[in-house]
């Protein structure tokens, strides 16, 4: 059941992007696997069109692109890279829906400039899966019913991964504190906490 849910969702999303996404998926983006992103450079980043070069890793792939400096990280992820698993709710750093990992730590992708991720590694919810295998956190959220409408879930899962990176075996207090930057409008909090506990045991 879990697997079907995942397959049908991710397939249809990918197909959707293939079919209709060319307008938003920038032509200048290169996706290829490399091991290291370059260190930050100095200077003024501006060409005639005020677009600047950006290099970072997203879900293990090197991304080299040109963006306007006021592009936020979530705009890069969703609009340019077409990774729409990460959601935007408040767009003001207040709810956690847009949480991704930056060099292993949870950040709000709506509230930072994409340029501030230059030379760093971003992991989105799509990057947690190993091929078609669900990540233990994703499995735990399904097993423990850690969601109702599911809209906050990608952010909850990424915040949980950030927490587990810091505390592989968190106690209840660390879980409550570590997850406190993520709001759930459906108030699924007890089951979200249970899901994190279950994932930590995997």
């Amino acid at each position: 059941m879990a697997k079907n849910k995942k397959n049908s969702r991710s397939m249809s999303r990918r197909d959707f992007m293939k079919g209709f996404g060319s307008g938003v998926v920038g032509g200048s983006i290169m996706l290829q696997t490399l091991h290291a992103a370059p260190p930050p450079t100095t200077g003024t980043f501006k060409d005639e069109s005020n677009r600047v070069e950006l290099t970072l890793k997203v879900n293990g792939k090197l991304v080299q692109t040109k963006i306007t400096p006021h592009t936020t990280l979530i705009e890069l992820i969703r609009d340019k890279l077409a990774l729409t698993g990460t959601k935007v709710v408040c767009n003001h750093g207040e709810c956690g829906a847009c949480t991704v990992l930056l060099d292993g730590r949870a950040v709000y992708s709506c509230h930072m400039l994409a340029l501030d991720a230059h030379g760093k590694e971003v992991i989105t919810v799509e990057g947690l899966m190993q091929g078609e295998e669900l990540h233990p956190l994703q499995e735990a959220f399904i097993e423990k019913d850690g969601m109702q409408c599911g809209f906050c879930t990608p952010g909850q899962i990424m915040a949980a991964q950030g927490l587990l990176n810091e505390h592989p075996h968190p106690n209840r207090e660390q879980i409550l504190k570590g997850m406190s930057g993520n709001i759930c409008r459906c108030s699924a909090y007890p089951k979200i906490a249970d899901s994190v506990v279950a994932a930590a045991k995997k």
Partner: peptide, 11 residues
């Protein structure tokens, strides 16, 4: 968001 140019000085 309003656009701006971005500088990364070395000192």
């Amino acid at each position: 968001m309003k656009s701006f140019s971005y500088h990364q000085p070395k000192d």
